[in-house]
Design a protein around this nucleic acid. Structure first.
Lengths: 126, 126
DNA sequence: CCGAATCCACAACGATACTG
DNA sequence: CAGTATCGTTGTGGATTCGG
């Protein structure tokens, strides 16, 4: 998975750590809601409520949870305005926007192979 | 998410279906083990046992389960040799190989932003 | 060697209620 | 409006066992 090494003192520990982290982030982002959140924020900065309304079927809890994870990994920025009522805006960071490319790539891939996938499922049966 | 329409009779139903499917496949592939399996099969055709040995920590059950899903979605081909003992080989299909690009992209992304992510986590704290 | 079924522990999720 | 805590339910993954 890792093809290029770090300059300085590349070693197996670094490579293993990078791979391990890659898988972890991949899991964090590529769950049920991650791509949708990233995708929406890719279009514009949004408030919590706007995200909730924009994502069909997500619960208050899951949205908060996912946003915390994305924030922790530095994919989204969280800005709190000390007004009343409170106003919190979420926006993609630069790494987040870079990842958006991958999300779009995945969508493009699905579109390209849509027929293939459905055929395969039909052949496979239940 | 979907930027290009089908020729003929594009409609909202198609687009919604494609998006929905994209999310589904994304979840199927981008789980804990998907990328590792795709990645390994990207290097060479492998037997069930070889995959199990090549993926640190995966259980017999999860490997079988993931392979079923990937097969169902037409990402891997399963070839059974009627010998004794049985021999089953897994290989990427063309859609599977195409998806490998996305997986690699994700790994490259992580490598590129590794420092970013770790900094962010450190700032975030527990 | 491959894979499916069973059982069981534990994590994920939704609903609800509560704080700032 | 935004976020957290708790609780009850559901689902997911691991170990084991049996069958092809």
């Amino acid at each position: 998975m890792v093809t290029k090494q770090f300059e300085g003192s590349p070693n197996d520990a670094d490579l293993t750590r990078a791979d391990s982290l890659a898988r972890e982030i991949f899991s964090d982002v590529a769950n049920k809601w991650g791509p949708l959140i990233i995708g929406l924020l890719g279009e514009s900065t949004l408030r919590f409520g706007e995200l909730r309304d924009g994502i069909e079927g997500i619960s208050h809890k899951m949205l908060a949870q996912n946003l915390r994870t994305l924030e922790r990994n530095g994919l989204v920025d969280r800005t709190v305005y000390a007004t009343v009522p409170p106003r919190v805006e979420y926006t993609l960071t630069e790494p987040g926007r870079a990842l958006l490319e991958t999300v779009h790539g995945m969508c493009g891939w699905t579109q390209q192979y849509l027929g293939h996938i459905e055929d395969s499922r039909r052949r496979f049966g239940a």
